[in-house]
């Protein structure tokens, strides 16, 4: 094995892949949230549609879409493999465990939170990504904003979207600062900053995302 594969298949290297892809996915969330937040201008989706059109047609963004999918798949596959391996490291469990005495429940539940987000993601891609690539939008001449208004008419969809954002919030609450620790960024000067940016990040983005289906459902944004 070459040194690269030895590194990336070691326990530390696997975590490195999870951390780097995790932070990359965080950067995607910022862009996604930024463009979607244009709906809050309440201009009938005009600004949002321009943003959505740019994201769908710009060649750099189009290439980044492939990178994003690769990053997402790497993050999912690597964490699933790690979760299985970690399970194997303790074949016989404890009779009585008091995990809350030494760690946060969401830190111990990253795989479950991630799985919930993945289930949501499949539904979400079906809603908004598939309508674009399948040519449904082009055929009907519908805008992305009109698509949003239509999908968020159903209360069950709104509930699923909001629950998914709660999972995302807890996933980020651990994941954001954890990624820095994995990359070796642990320094007395920056630990406070990483921690507080992580908390703000994991609150602001999911709240903004969760607000979108809610305001559309209640007709505040139309």
């Amino acid at each position: 094995m070459s040194w690269i594969s030895t590194t990336l298949t070691s326990s530390l290297g696997k975590k490195l892949i999870v951390g780097i892809t995790g932070l990359f996915l965080c950067s995607f969330l910022v862009v996604h949230c930024g463009i979607n937040s244009l709906i809050f201008l309440n201009d009938g989706g005009e600004a949002f549609n321009i943003g959505a059109y740019f994201m769908a047609t710009n060649p750099v963004i189009k290439i980044m879409e492939y990178v994003l999918f690769l990053g997402l798949i790497a993050h999912i596959v690597q964490t699933l493999l790690l979760a299985l391996e970690n399970k194997k490291a303790r074949p016989v469990g404890y009779f009585k465990e008091n995990g809350n005495a030494n760690s946060k429940w969401y830190s111990r539940s990253m795989a479950i939170l991630g799985t919930l987000i993945l289930i949501f993601l499949i539904l979400h891609l079906k809603h908004f990504w598939w309508s674009k690539v399948s040519g449904h939008l082009a055929e009907t001449g519908e805008t992305m904003f009109a698509e949003m208004l239509e999908i968020f008419e159903k209360p069950i969809i709104v509930v699923i979207y909001v629950l998914a954002q709660i999972s995302l919030a807890y996933h980020l609450l651990h994941g954001f600062s954890s990624a820095f620790q994995t990359l070796g960024f642990n320094h007395i000067k920056y630990n406070g900053l990483i921690k507080s940016v992580g908390v703000v990040f994991s609150l602001v983005l999911p709240i903004a995302f969760a607000a979108m289906p809610i305001v559309i459902y209640f007709g505040i944004i139309k």
């Binding site: 975590k15 490195l16 970690n86 760690s103 830190s107």
Partner: peptide, 26 residues
């Protein structure tokens, strides 16, 4: 197993060794 950065190790360590050492190792 691998590290999930839950911090349970350091919280339970009788010598209270910090996970900053894990970052140094990384």
């Amino acid at each position: 197993g691998a590290c999930t950065n839950t911090g349970a190790c350091s919280a339970e360590c009788p010598k209270e060794i910090s996970i900053s050492h894990i970052a140094r190792m990384n």
